[in-house]
């Protein structure tokens, strides 16, 4: 009888797959420590501000008011409009960045001379802060929205171009020879050989580009537009609502982290290299 009870207990335990749960918890252990450390430093900072009479006007930057403001923004639904605007700009900017960057990268990677010719001018352009194009963008585009998207494209094309070109250069020349030998046409070579071969590199470039775009977007939204997370920060500053400002900063960080994680998952999905 007692033996039977033991068996049923152990099978019930295995149903909950304790090893899986333990593994998940142990995977989260270090990130949790990191987050706790960050929150602790933030809390200390808040205390220091609060106790300094010159800075006490900014005490709403502390974690408690910030999380309260975040809760209000989420429950009232106010936060979704700026998030949607910002993500929309990122999406359009990334789409253009990919649409321009991948073909240009494939071309300069495939034609060795083109890479040599393009290298210096592209590296030069890459090092110019996208925000430096702002006055030109404002003159060139009718709407602030398209000007911001232009800035995002200027930020995203370079990592995508370089990463794609690098991927094409790395393709095993025998892969081309075998495919030609099997009668591949130009478009077939592109679709079946080149694109899958460079997919990991393209995704790595996209991941870099998303990071840059997200960083550039917020200051770009300080200018002209009346929507987006950058605008929300500016707006909070103007109305002295520092708790909301801190909450928006939190949201920016969380979404940025989320975008990067999605890119990372896609890289893993498209990676064909054996670990």
């Amino acid at each position: 009888m007692s033996a039977g009870t033991t068996t049923s207990t152990s099978s019930a335990v295995s149903l909950f797959a304790p090893t899986k749960l333990v593994r998940l918890l142990s995977n989260l252990q270090y990130p949790a420590m990191g987050i706790t450390g960050l929150l602790f430093l933030w809390w200390i900072g808040g205390l220091l501000i609060q106790n300094n009479e010159n800075l006490s006007a900014f005490s709403a930057f502390a974690p408690a008011p910030a999380f309260q403001a975040l809760y209000d923004l989420v429950t009232s639904g106010e936060i979704w409009a700026p998030i949607t605007s910002s993500l929309y700009r990122i999406l359009v900017g990334m789409t253009w960045g990919i649409a321009i960057g991948v073909p240009v990268g494939v071309t300069i990677g495939y034609i060795g001379v083109a890479l040599k010719v393009a290298n210096v001018p592209f590296q030069f352009l890459r090092m110019i802060s996208p925000l430096a194009w702002m006055p030109i963008a404002v003159m060139a585009f009718e709407t602030w929205d398209s000007a911001i998207i232009f800035l995002l494209v200027m930020a995203t094309v370079w990592p995508i171009i370089f990463s794609t070109a690098h991927g094409v250069r790395r393709i095993d020349p025998n892969w081309f020879k075998v495919a030609r030998n099997l009668g591949a046409s130009g478009p077939q070579m592109l679709r079946r050989i080149i694109l899958p071969a460079i997919m990991t590199d393209v995704m790595a470039g996209i991941r870099l580009a998303v990071g840059v775009a997200w960083v550039v977007l917020v200051p770009a939204e300080y200018l002209g537009v009346t929507s987006g997370l950058g605008y929300a920060i500016n707006d909070a500053r103007d109305t002295l609502s520092y708790d909301y400002l801190a909450a928006v900063v939190l949201v920016i960080g969380i979404i940025g982290y989320g975008l990067d994680s999605v890119c990372n998952l896609l890289i893993k999905r498209f990676n064909w290299h054996v670990e």
Binding site: D172, N174, W175, V178, N181, G183, W272
Partner: peptide, 15 residues
């Protein structure tokens, strides 16, 4: 593909 060559390396496509 009607006159087909095999090389020293198999050169298979890993994806």
């Amino acid at each position: 593909a009607k006159w087909n060559m095999m090389f020293q390396k198999a050169s298979l496509y890993p994806w």
